[in-house]
Design a protein around this nucleic acid. Structure first.
Length: 510
RNA sequence: GGCCCAUUCGUCUAUCGGUUAGGACGCAAGAUUUUCAUUCUUGAAAGAGCAGUUCGAUUCUGCUAUGGGCUACCA
C-alpha cells in the first residue's frame, strides 16, 4: 500500500515530556522525514483530572529545542484542526454511539465506587475482577436493563460510560513492525471504557482510534506500554469498518532506569543525578526538575544520544547530524528490548560535539558565561580561548574553570604545585626566564617557544621544572594548555607581571 | 495472580545457521605531552539454563528462569 506517510506524536499534557517521550517523538520524526511524510502533533488531553498547566507549552518548546519539526498540529494548525482532543469532544460521542448502535458497545451505569467494591470483593476471594462477558449481563448495563430503563437513566442525568463489548474467545492476529506477529485471545481482555459521561470526554482508546483515522495516520509509532491495548485497537478498527486504512503499528522498546529497575520515570530525574527532561521544569506546585538544555547539553548531542538508544544504523558510525539520522533511520533496525539509559554516554556525546565546534560557534555560547563573570572581550578572543580548551570540556559551563586564568591573574597558588615547582633552583631559574622573556619583542606562540627552548637547551636546565614554575606563575595551578598559548594570549606585559607577582609575593618552599 | 513483550561483554549494541562473536561507553595498562586533558595503542569483559531441529546453532522451535510492560470512568 503506497499511501502518504503520516505519523503523529500524541503526548498527554500531564507534566513535562521526559526523554522517553522525546525519543518517541524523534523516531516518529525521523520516520516521517525519511519517507517524505508528515509529522503531526496531537495533544491528548482527555484526562481532565491529570491536566497540568504549562505542560503543553513545555512539550512544544522541547520539540523545538531538539530540532523536531511539526508539520501539522497544535501550534501550527493544519487541515484536520483542531489537534487538541479537548477541542474535538463533540466528535467522539457520535462515534461511541455508532458503536453502541452496531452492537459493538453498550452503556454501563456502575459507579466507580461500586466497581471498586466489586474488585475488593473479588480480591478478598482470591479472584480477579474483570469487566467482560462474564459479568456484563449481570451489572446495570444496556445489555441487562430494558431499553426504557436505559433511556430513563440517561434522561435523568445518571452518570454512564460506554464500554466496548469485547468478543469472547476469539484470537486477534496483529502485526507489529518491530516485533512481528502477535496473537491474543479476546477472552483475556476486558470491556474497556470508551466514553465517560461525567466529563463528556472519550478515553484514550476511542479518541486515539477516531483521531488517527480522521487524521489519516499511516503509521503509529509509540511506546511498548501500548502493546497490551493493541488488540482492542485492532478490534475498534474492525468495529468502525476502517480496517482497510488501519495504520501500521510499531511499538518501541522502553527506556529503562540506569540501574535497570523498571522504566525510566519522571521521578528519577534529580534523584539519580542526571536530567530526565529536555528542559528545566517548574510545576504549578513549585517543584522543579533539571533539563538537558540548562545542564549544558547541546541539542544535537542530546538527539544523537537518544537516537542510538534503541536504534542502530548497522554501521560503526556513531556521530550523526539530524539529516544523517533521517537518511539512515529505519524501523527494522530498532531493537526489541528495553534500553537502560546511560548518563556517561550522554556526556561522551556532548564532549564529541564540543570538540567539533568551531571557535565562532563557541564564542556565541561562551560569551554569556564570560559576561556573568564580568569579562568583556571580543567574540574572537572568547572563541579563541574556548577553542584552546574545548578538548577538555564536556559542557560549555566547564570552560570557565578551564580558562579563567586567561582573564584573571592567579591570586592563590595550588599547594601541591608550590611544593613541586617553587623550591630549590626554581625561583632563580624563573627570574632568569623573566629576563629572557623581557628581551623578546615578538610574543607570538612560535617565536616565544623557539627562543625559550633555545635558552633552556643552552643552559641545560630541566625543561619540566622550568615550564612548570612558569605555569605556576601564570596559571597558579598544574593544569592548562601549552604554556606558549598562555604567554601569547597574555602578552608580554601581563606575563612579566604575573612572574613578578610570584617571585616577590610567595616565599619558596623549603 | 492473569495476559503480553523481551533476554549477546558492567552498559548501549553488531551478527539475519558455519566468525578468532565486531564496535562504542566505562574501566585498566602503555605511548605521547612542560602540566592537566586530548589523542593513539593494547588489555580484561558476553551468547541466561535445559532440551530439540540440523552435518553444524548466539542465530530456528519448545520449556524453565530472569527482566520489563499492561491489567483504571490515566495516558
Amino acid at each position: 500500500m503506497a499511501r502518504e506517510v503520516r505519523v503523529r506524536f500524541a503526548p498527554s499534557p500531564t507534566g513535562p515530556l521526559h526523554i522517553g517521550g522525546v525519543r518517541t517523538a524523534l523516531y516518529n520524526y525521523l520516520f516521517a522525514r525519511h519517507h517524505g511524510g508528515k509529522m503531526i502533533l496531537r495533544i491528548e488531553d482527555t484526562d481532565s483530572q491529570r491536566f497540568v498547566e504549562g505542560a503543553e507549552a513545555y512539550i512544544i518548546e522541547s520539540l523545538k529545542w531538539c530540532g523536531i519539526e511539526i508539520d501539522e498540529g497544535v501550534g501550527v494548525g493544519g487541515p484536520h484542526a483542531p489537534y487538541r482532543q479537548s477541542e474535538r469532544r463533540e466528535i467522539y460521542l457520535k462515534y461511541a454511539r455508532q458503536l453502541v448502535d452496531a452492537g459493538w458497545a453498550y452503556y454501563a451505569f456502575d459507579t466507580s465506587e461500586e466497581l471498586d467494591a466489586l474488585r475488593h470483593e473479588a480480591e478478598a476471594e482470591g479472584r480477579t475482577f474483570a469487566y467482560n462477558s462474564t459479568v456484563r449481563e449481570k451489572l446495570p448495563t444496556s445489555l441487562s436493563l430494558p431499553a426504557s430503563e436505559v433511556e430513563a437513566r440517561i434522561a435523568r442525568g445518571d452518570v454512564w460510560v460506554i464500554r466496548f463489548k469485547m468478543p469472547e474467545n476469539e484470537v486477534v492476529k496483529m502485526h507489529d513492525l518491530i516485533r512481528g506477529d502477535v496473537e491474543v485471545n479476546t477472552s483475556t481482555l476486558d470491556d474497556k471504557v470508551l466514553y465517560k459521561s461525567a466529563d463528556a470526554l472519550p478515553t484514550y482508546h476511542l479518541a486515539n482510534i477516531v483521531d488517527d483515522h480522521l487524521m489519516e495516520i499511516s503509521h503509529v509509532i509509540r511506546g511498548e506500554e501500548w502493546l497490551p491495548s493493541l488488540p482492542l485497537h485492532y478490534l475498534l478498527y474492525r468495529a468502525f469498518g476502517w480496517e482497510d486504512t488501519r495504520p501500521e503499528f510499531a511499538h518501541l522498546p522502553l527506556l529503562l532506569k540506569p540501574t535497570g529497575g523498571g522504566k525510566l520515570s519522571k521521578r528519577d530525574g534529580d534523584k539519580m543525578g542526571f536530567p530526565v527532561f529536555p528542559l528545566y521544569w517548574v510545576s504549578p506546585t513549585g517543584e522543579t526538575a533539571h533539563g538537558y538544555r540548562e545542564d549544558g547539553y547541546f541539542p544535537e548531542a542530546f538527539i544523537n544520544m537518544l537516537a542510538l538508544l534503541g536504534w542502530n544504523p548497522g554501521t560503526e558510525q556513531e556521530i550523526f547530524s539530524m539529516d544523517e539520522l533521517i537518511d539512515a533511520f529505519s524501523l527494522d533496525r530498532v531493537s526489541k528490548s528495553g534500553a537502560r539509559f546511560q548518563p556517561d554516554k550522554a556526556k561522551w556525546f556532548n564532549a564529541q560535539y564540543m570538540h567539533r565546534k568551531s571557535d565562532a560557534e563557541l564564542a556565541v555560547l561562551y560569551q554569556p558565561i564570560l559576561r556573568e563573570h564580568g569579562i568583556e572581550v571580543d567574540d574572537e578572543v572568547a572563541g579563541h580561548v574556548a577553542g584552546i580548551m574545548k578538548e577538555r570540556a564536556v559542557f560549555i559551563g566547564d570552560l570557565w574553570d578551564l580558562t579563567s586564568y586567561f582573564f584573571i591573574a592567579p591570586s592563590v597558588y595550588e599547594e601541591k604545585q608550590l611544593k613541586k615547582y617553587w623550591r630549590g633552583e626554581n625561583p632563580a631559574h624563573l627570574a632568569e626566564l623573566r629576563a629572557v622573556l623581557a628581551s623578546i619583542d615578538d610574543f607570538s606562540k612560535e617565536n616565544t617557544e623557539r627562543i625559550v627552548h633555545a635558552w633552556i637547551e643552552e643552559k641545560g636546565y630541566p625543561m619540566g621544572q622550568i615550564m612548570n614554575s612558569l605555569r605556576l606563575a601564570l596559571v597558579g595551578a598544574g593544569k592548562g594548555p601549552g604554556m606558549y598559548d598562555v604567554t601569547a594570549f597574555l602578552g608580554k606585559e601581563e606575563t612579566l607581571r604575573r612572574i613578578d607577582a610570584l617571585i616577590s609575593g610567595v616565599a619558596p618552599v623549603e
